[in-house]
Design a protein around this nucleic acid. Sequence first.
DNA 1: CAGTATCCCTCATGATACTG
DNA 2: CAGTATCATGAGGGATACTG
Lengths: 141, 141
Amino acid sequence: MATRTAAQRRADERGAYDAYLATCPARQLLDRISDKWVSLVLNALADGPLRYGDLNRIIAGVSQKMLTQTLRALERDGLLTRTVTPSVPVRVDYQLTALGLSLLPVMASIKSWAECHIEQVQTARTDYDRGTATELPAPGP
Amino acid sequence: MATRTAAQRRADERGAYDAYLATCPARQLLDRISDKWVSLVLNALADGPLRYGDLNRIIAGVSQKMLTQTLRALERDGLLTRTVTPSVPVRVDYQLTALGLSLLPVMASIKSWAECHIEQVQTARTDYDRGTATELPAPGP
DNA sequence: CAGTATCCCTCATGATACTG
DNA sequence: CAGTATCATGAGGGATACTG
């Protein structure tokens, strides 16, 4: 019998690919910014620092868990700073770093493409969903 | 009693936000391109059309299911075309449309930022993971 | 105020098997 | 060759309750 099934082969290929992707800079960035809450947080902080509660209100539907998790991830990546003021009650401010700010133009370019072309995409979707009927002669009953 | 609990309030806010996000062009685009296989497919097709089997080989770890699903989604969005040649055996070619091609520069800008700054991000991560020890005087035993 | 801890549940992904 | 169909799983995300 074969020492290696097709399934095993594929699994190996997947492993190698995953390893490659894990170290791919573009992949890492995409994984970060494509997170729903990340983009919203970056946007909210674009105009200046905000407190935890502010973010919680501005980003309407976010749960505490996801907000905290998102902020921690961004802090870890050096995209924002977390400043604790040990008053009573405690106050915590979040602010974009230079690195975080440098990301905003990238987000803007994404937004720009989207706003210019999303209509074409939506039209394409509608056409596609209407079925391939357009390229077929109407089938008779 | 309150006609609306805090939980209900939050749920409503979430609903409204979700609805907003669902129609936000930038969000839609991010959701598309951030998909692991989508970016790989777009990249693979950047240099010209390829057959299903080619894509399956080039994008090493992809399963048939995910490849087909990805290609269908991109076709639906008008980002690529699917051309069936009814020979025996059948032959199917995938090719980026003008719309799909116009997306490549956006991907490039993402890649560019990542390659320029990912090192800073990784340094930040290492520092963060080392603990906040750097900003605290070494705690004595 | 700004979190942490816990449970729960859905949905996306992948492996496998079958087909025109 | 180029898919479709079906099933299993596991990670992500939300609701809820508790705390310094």
